[in-house]
C-alpha cells in the first residue's frame, strides 16, 4: 500500500502529522506493536528533521506484507558531511529550535537505531533523501 504526505519546513505545529497517520495505519495492519512503535518513532524524527532544516519535504510510504519502506525526501540545504551528522550529539540546530526541545543531535542516529535498513544521501544546496526499511518478517 502506498501513502504520501507533505511536510512544510519551519512549521513545528504540524510536525508529526505523517507519523501519527502512519501509526493509525500500522495499528490496523501489524500485530507486532514493537515494530509499529520503532517505525513511527523513526518517521517522527525524520519529519522533525525536515521541519527544522529544510524548506519542504515529502514522505512516501510503501507497506507490504513483509516490510515497510519509508522515503523522506526534502528540498533544503542538504548535509555536507553525513558521517559527522550521524554522530550522536552533533547538531546544527539553532538556539530557537533547541529551546523547543529539538536539536539535541540524536535525530539521525535515533532513526537508524529504530530501523532495519537506513540509507541517507544528500546534495548540498539541493536536499536530502532518506530511506528506511523495517522488516515485518524476520528471517
Amino acid at each position: 500500500m502506498y501513502f504520501e504526505f507533505d511536510i512544510e519546513g519551519g512549521d513545528f505545529s504540524k510536525a508529526g502529522y505523517a507519523s501519527s497517520q502512519l501509526k493509525k495505519i500500522l495499528k490496523q495492519l501489524v500485530g507486532d506493536h514493537k515494530i509499529v512503535k520503532r517505525t513511527v518513532v523513526a518517521l517522527y524524527e525524520a519529519e522533525v528533521n525536515v521541519v527544522a532544516h529544510a524548506f519542504s519535504g515529502k514522505v512516501i510510504i510503501n507497506i507490504d506484507t513483509d516490510k515497510i519502506e519509508i522515503q523522506v525526501n526534502d528540498k533544503g540545504p542538504g548535509i555536507s558531511d553525513i558521517q559527522l551528522a550521524m554522530k550522536e550529539g552533533y547538531s546544527t540546530a539553532s538556539e530557537k529550535v533547541r529551546e523547543m526541545g529539538f536539536g539535541a543531535g540524536m535525530g539521525l542516529s535515533n532513526i537508524k537505531n529504530n530501523s532495519d535498513e537506513f540509507y541517507l544521501s544528500s546534495e548540498v544546496g539541493l536536499g536530502t533523501k532518506l530511506t528506511i526499511i523495517a522488516y515485518l518478517v524476520k528471517e
Binding site: M1, Q28, L29, V30, H33, T65
Partner: peptide, 20 residues
Amino acid sequence: NPRSMMKLDENMAEAMNKMR
C-alpha cells in the same frame, strides 16, 4: 498483556485488502 482491538484482520494481506 496488550489486547489491541484495532487490527482489521489477523492476516496482514487481508488487513491490507480491508484497508484499501
